[in-house]
Amino acid sequence: MNKTIISSFFLPLFFLFIIFPVVALWINLDWAGIQATFNDWYFWDAVKNTIIASGLAGLLSLVVSIGFGFFYLFHRDSVIYRIANLFNDLPIALPHTVAGLALLLAFGRKNFGFLGQTGVAFTFFSLVLAMFFVSYSLAARTLVSGVDQMEKEVIDVARTLGDNSAQAYFRVVLPMMGEALVSGFVLSFSRSVSEFAAVIMFGGNLPGKTQVLASYVFTQVEVGELKMAVTAACFCVLLSLLILSLLGFRRPKYAKG
């Protein structure tokens, strides 16, 4: 199969189903919609909620991934690792409405009601938890893939120089995995920015409180404000492109063939 044949099916399908829908958003963008959206404080609240909650979810994902990476590297036979590994990819396969419902039952009124009438549900913190739940596995997998690529002998050397496994992990492994850590955070952050179902189930869609960009777009479509929805959607596209460009420039480039 040569380059022409590959291009003949790749280009039309890619442009029609990936590029064109994004272009369609920009075609429908107009000045009135931009003005109305940018003058809407709920939009800026949604932007703020999205960025802060996604950032916190990304950081939380990174912290938990670092723990998972340790067990992956040094205790792969342990029960803790086996259970963690089993549950790691669950959020990817699980419908995110189910994830939202699970979080609602776990941290809602029934179990955490002492924190308020609804427990943790429908608070800003619930956004972070919902985003973390669906994005953590991306950070964990990225970190583990970084661990797989590293030269294991550096760990052996560190240990012969007196480090125990935890010291070797924090002093040698993690500092040498800067790229995997950044990628893990960015992937988790970007997945969190795009999350809708789990967020709306667990955090609700309260304008100015728990509304995020994804739910803001949904709301504007629901109430018939399509121009504002388009503006917010284009803003999301720009935000996503910005995040992904952070990842893109770190990827290795291969020779042309």
């Binding site: 030269e151 002998e153 550096v154 052996d156 050397v157 560190a158 012969t160 040698v172 500092p175 040498m176």
Partner: peptide, 10 residues
């Protein structure tokens, strides 16, 4: 002390 095949420097 251990000196591996590849220098395995930090």
């Amino acid at each position: 002390g251990y000196v591996p095949q590849h220098p395995a420097l930090f």
